[in-house]
C-alpha cells in the first residue's frame, strides 16, 4: 500500500498573481499515473510541501472535473506560504491529498444555494462556484455573499462580475471599509441579508471564513428560519498530519482534518462562541 503520509512530486504549471499577498498555483503531478488517479471534492484540501521548509494545508479551488490540473489560491501569511509565493512556473513541490470531507453537493441538488464567505474564506468555496456554474441546471437560485474588511482586499473582482451575469445568480459584496469606486455595499456582511432572495425552506447554506463572521451569518440564517442542519461550514485549525493523528486540529470531539473541514452546523454548535477550542 502507498504510504499515506508521503507527498508526490508536482510542478507549477502556472502562477497567477491575484493581489499583493494572494497568488494561485496551478499544479500537476509529475507522475502521470498519480495525476490520472487524483480526485478531489470541493471543500477538500491538500498538504503542499516546499523543499526544506515544510508543509501547509491549502484547499483546492479548481473544478473537480479538471483531470489535468488543480489550483490552490494561497495567501502569503506565514513562513511556508511566503516561501511558496516565490515559486515560479516549472518549479517542483510535494503534494499529498486530498484530505478531509468536502461539501455534500449532491445532497444539495434542487435547492437554492447560499454561499457566505469572508476574507480569503471564499477559496474553499470557489471550487463550489465553479462546480455549480458547470451544472447550473441541478440547482435553483444561487446566492453568493462575500464580505471583506477593506474593499482593496477583494480578489477576483472580475469573476464576481462574471458570476453576477449568470442566470438566477445573485452576487452581493460588502466591505467594512470601502475605498472610492466601490459599487457594492459598505458595512458588515449581515447588511447583505436584506438584499438576498432565497427560499429558507428549500435552501442549503455554505459558509467559510473567520469564525466570528460565520457565527453572525448563522444567526442571520436561523433567524430567517433556515433549519440548522441545512447550514454547512468549513472550519480551520492548525493541521500538520492531515490524517487525524497529530492532534493539533481538534475541535472538541472532532479532528477538523478528518471529520471536517466541512461540518454541518449541528455537529459543531456545542462549542459555538467558546474561545479556545
Amino acid at each position: 500500500m502507498d504510504n499515506v503520509g508521503m507527498p508526490h512530486e508536482a510542478e507549477v504549471v502556472e502562477k497567477i498573481i491575484e493581489s499583493k499577498s494572494i497568488f494561485t498555483l496551478r499544479l500537476r503531478f509529475t507522475d502521470p499515473q498519480v495525476q490520472a488517479s487524483y480526485r478531489f471534492l470541493p471543500g477538500q484540501f491538500n498538504m503542499l510541501y516546499l523543499y526544506g521548509a515544510g508543509e501547509v494545508p491549502i484547499s483546492v479551488v479548481s473544478d473537480p472535473l479538471d483531470e489535468h490540473i488543480f489550483d490552490h489560491a494561497i495567501r502569503a501569511v506565514g513562513r511556508i506560504t511566503n516561501a511558496l509565493s516565490r515559486l515560479e512556473q516549472g518549479d517542483r513541490l510535494g503534494v499529498r491529498g486530498p484530505y478531509g470531507r468536502g461539501w455534500p453537493l449532491q445532497e444539495m441538488e434542487a435547492n437554492d444555494l447560499v454561499l457566505i464567505t469572508g476574507g480569503l474564506g471564499c477559496a474553499p468555496l470557489v471550487s463550489v462556484i465553479n462546480y455549480v456554474m458547470r451544472r447550473r441546471e441541478l440547482f435553483n437560485r444561487f446566492v453568493i455573499m462575500q464580505g471583506v474588511k477593506h474593499s482593496d482586499d477583494l480578489i477576483w473582482r472580475s469573476r464576481y462580475q462574471e458570476w453576477q451575469q449568470q442566470p438566477d445568480t445573485q452576487v452581493y459584496l460588502a466591505a467594512d471599509q470601502a475605498g472610492p469606486g466601490w459599487p457594492w455595499t459598505t458595512g458588515p456582511i449581515s447588511a447583505l441579508f436584506k438584499q438576498a432572495e432565497f427560499d429558507v425552506a428549500r435552501s442549503k447554506a455554505m459558509l467559510c471564513g473567520p469564525e466570528g463572521m460565520m457565527f453572525v451569518a448563522i444567526d442571520e440564517l436561523t433567524r430567517r428560519g433556515m433549519p440548522e442542519s441545512d447550514i454547512w461550514l468549513s472550519m480551520e485549525r492548525n493541521m500538520q498530519c492531515a490524517v487525524g493523528h497529530c492532534g493539533h486540529c481538534q475541535y472538541g470531539p472532532h479532528f477538523v482534518c478528518k471529520q471536517g473541514p466541512v461540518f454541518s452546523y449541528p455537529e459543531v454548535r456545542q462549542l459555538h462562541w467558546v474561545a479556545g477550542f
Binding site: Y49, Y51, G52, G54, Q240, C241, C246, G247, H248
Partner: peptide
C-alpha cells in the same frame, strides 16, 4: 497523549531534507 508536530530538517548539503515528527503538547 499522542500529539506530535511535523517539522522539516534540511541537510547542510542543500540536496536532502528530512520530514520529522516529534512529540508536541497542547
Amino acid at each position: 497523549c499522542f500529539c506530535h508536530s511535523e517539522i522539516d530538517h534540511p541537510g547542510l548539503n542543500g540536496m536532502t531534507s528530512e520530514h520529522i515528527r516529534e512529540w508536541d503538547s497542547c
